[in-house]
Design a binder for these strands. Structure first.
Length: 271
DNA sequence: ATGCGGACCTGTTAGC
DNA sequence: TGCTAACAGGTCCGCA
């Protein structure tokens, strides 16, 4: 489900409810998500207080006064803050219960998400260490992209979705950014000119920023920490619109499969 | 080094 | 209406 805008929306939704909260109890109802859930969480976390809720790539970082929790929502994960404990529904796999009674609940039907305990610096964790730059930072620019793409034959869409290249761009926003930049998703990354990388870098920043503003994209069941859906779906110009007219030129939007992912583009606007 | 396909898991939708 | 196949927001890993 969540790409960067949805994770950031979630972060903003839960942060004000969690900072300063002291953990009372951890309830694990599922043996494993992406990885086996560490039983030591149940013994280690009670008593610790959340100092900050940060995001790196599509990971949420809960910084505690000692150690950190790394959270990834996978394809279908979502978080809710509940004012008090409630009976769990289907796929409500984890509850973090605080001394105030507030509960942070992780819901994840497909179980591709992750919850990891990280005693040391989370940015040095093996899963985060090799990640590329944040797309909304100045590190993402045309020169960086051209240099990294040099000599590479991979299609530009899977290239920009690779988290070693840039983080946060998933399947929806990759198609949207390429449409805005007028670049075919199948163009080999190594063949793209500096000026087109410039347009793409700008498009990525714009589409992510606009999606964050709208509270993310809700396709089926995404909700931010407050349970509200995101409204960016209405602003999608190509994703999920196969056969419909292009918003710019009225040509039919096409759908192809690229790297096992559905990919949408306008054959007239993108070259 | 790069790039691809498979795997993980459940739910929903499209098609016969 | 009911069954089956394909597909869905991610990404790690192993292999060529």
């Amino acid at each position: 489900m969540p790409e960067l805008p949805e994770v950031e929306t979630t972060r903003r939704g839960i942060e004000p409810h969690l900072v300063g909260q002291q953990l009372a109890e951890v309830v694990l109802r599922c043996a494993k998500l992406r990885w086996p859930l560490e039983r030591e969480l149940v013994a280690t976390l009670p008593g610790l207080t959340i100092r900050a809720v940060e995001r790196r790539a599509k990971y949420l970082l809960l910084r505690l006064d000692r150690g950190n929790l790394l959270l990834h929502l996978g394809m279908s994960g979502s978080l809710r803050v509940l004012p008090q404990p409630q009976p769990p529904g289907r796929h409500d796999h984890v509850d973090l219960i605080f001394t105030s009674g507030v509960v942070l609940r992780l819901h994840d039907p497909r179980k591709f998400g992750a919850l990891l305990w990280c005693p040391g610096e989370p940015l040095q964790h093996r899963l985060l260490r090799a990640l590329g730059p944040e797309p909304l930072s100045d590190e993402l620019n045309a020169h960086y992209l051209r240099k990294l793409a040099s000599g590479r034959k991979q299609a530009v869409k899977p290239f920009i979705m690779s988290q070693q290249v840039i983080v946060g761009v998933g399947n929806i926003y990759a198609s949207e950014a390429l449409f805005r930049a007028g670049i075919l998703p199948t163009a080999p990354a190594g063949s793209i000119s500096l000026s087109r990388w410039q347009r793409l870098a700008t498009a990525i920043k714009q589409v992510l920023n606009e999606a964050i503003e709208a509270g993310g994209t809700t396709l089926q069941d995404f909700t931010g920490g407050d349970g509200k859906p995101g409204y960016f779906k209405q602003q999608l110009q190509v994703y999920g619109r196969a056969g419909e007219p292009c918003t710019a030129c009225h040509e039919q939007i096409r759908q192809i499969r690229l790297g096992q992912r559905s990919t949408y583009y306008c054959p007239r606007c993108q070259s």
